[in-house]
């Protein structure tokens, strides 16, 4: 197989509140022999909020990020569900609306850039599943996670709206019964836990505006995983991770029950199974202690 190479859009949290996500992404890519060219010029995607204020500005900034991936002639890989949604949504809108694309390109031309629509956009989870392949991953597992019950937490912005998300997937993912993260857990040797909240919202995006709603959603998610006898949770989204890892105190108060589980980034889980060290994967950066290593 030809060496896989992608343009990496890190998003902001990988540079700030989830350094372990950046560390584990690079560690796993190295182990798998995947080359990641970081888009250092990329801006924030607007995180599903900028467009509420200024939709056009959000489009222009996301189109600029994609334009840089196009310059490299590479598929853009994201490591945050919300970056994935915002970027893929921008691509979808521009690719289906010539007038809008021309308006956005008129702005981009001011800085010598053009959005062409030539790069695909996919989340690292799906790059591993669709392009690298789980069979090949299984062969590389040196420390199978066979003693663990692992609760997948998919994160809204990787699975909904499925019509948009499935534009770039080899195998369509159902928003109501997603399987990709379960399959990844099994490929890493773990047992995937089924529970109602695995495809539900963590509340992250309403944390400041609707703190009670957000805290209850977080609490429900962790409680669901605990009640299904999960040893820990895993998520492909750093925003879900922030919520589930750092906000369990508020969540416990909100739902009237003490809830807490270690939560790993999808990359950390794969990294552990591939034999990366806890330090390489940044496990010490978690607020909820990763107590099983």
């Amino acid at each position: 197989m030809e060496k896989l190479k992608y343009a990496l859009f890190t998003g902001c949290t990988a540079k700030e509140s989830t350094p372990e996500q950046m560390m584990s992404t690079l560690a796993v890519a190295k182990k798998l022999g995947i080359e990641l060219v970081e888009l250092t010029e990329a801006s924030c995607c607007g995180a599903s909020h900028l467009q509420d204020y200024d939709d056009f500005l959000s489009l222009v900034l996301n189109a600029r990020n994609i334009a840089y991936a196009e310059k490299h002639g590479l598929t853009m890989v994201t490591i945050c569900n919300t970056c994935q949604l915002n970027t893929a949504m921008t691509k979808h809108r521009l690719d289906h609306n010539a007038e809008l694309k021309a308006k956005v390109n008129a702005k981009l031309s001011e800085v010598g850039l053009e959005y062409k629509g030539t790069s695909q956009i996919t989340h690292f989870l799906y790059a591993i599943i669709d392009d690298f392949g789980l069979d090949k991953l299984k062969e590389m597992i040196v420390k199978p996670l066979s003693q663990f019950n692992i609760a997948p937490f998919y994160g809204c912005h990787n699975i909904r709206p499925s019509e948009l998300q499935n534009e770039t997937h080899k195998n369509p993912e159902s928003a109501y019964r997603p399987t990709s993260l379960d399959d990844l857990i099994v490929a890493c040797g773990g047992a995937s836990v089924d529970y109602e909240e695995k495809n539900k919202c963590c509340g992250f995006h309403a944390e400041l505006q609707a703190p009670r709603t957000a805290a209850i959603l977080t609490g429900n998610a962790v409680a669901g995983a605990m009640d299904a006898n999960a040893d820990w949770m895993v998520t492909p989204c750093p925003l879900c991770h922030l919520k589930l890892d750092t906000q369990t105190h508020h969540a416990s108060v909100a739902i009237g029950r003490e809830v807490s589980l270690p939560v790993l980034h999808m990359q950390q889980m794969v990294g552990l199974a591939l034999g990366c060290t806890p330090d390489e994967l940044g496990l010490k950066h978690h607020v909820t202690k990763v107590n099983f290593i």
Partner: peptide, 30 residues
């Protein structure tokens, strides 16, 4: 305590920030 907060003076910046500043200025509609 877990290294999850970047202090203001260590805030990373995107490369080619001048481009972003220019686009924010010219593309803002609100």
């Amino acid at each position: 305590a877990k290294g999850k907060i970047v202090l203001p003076w260590n805030m990373p910046k995107a490369d080619k920030l001048d481009e972003i500043k220019k686009l924010v200025k010219s593309s803002s509609t609100v």
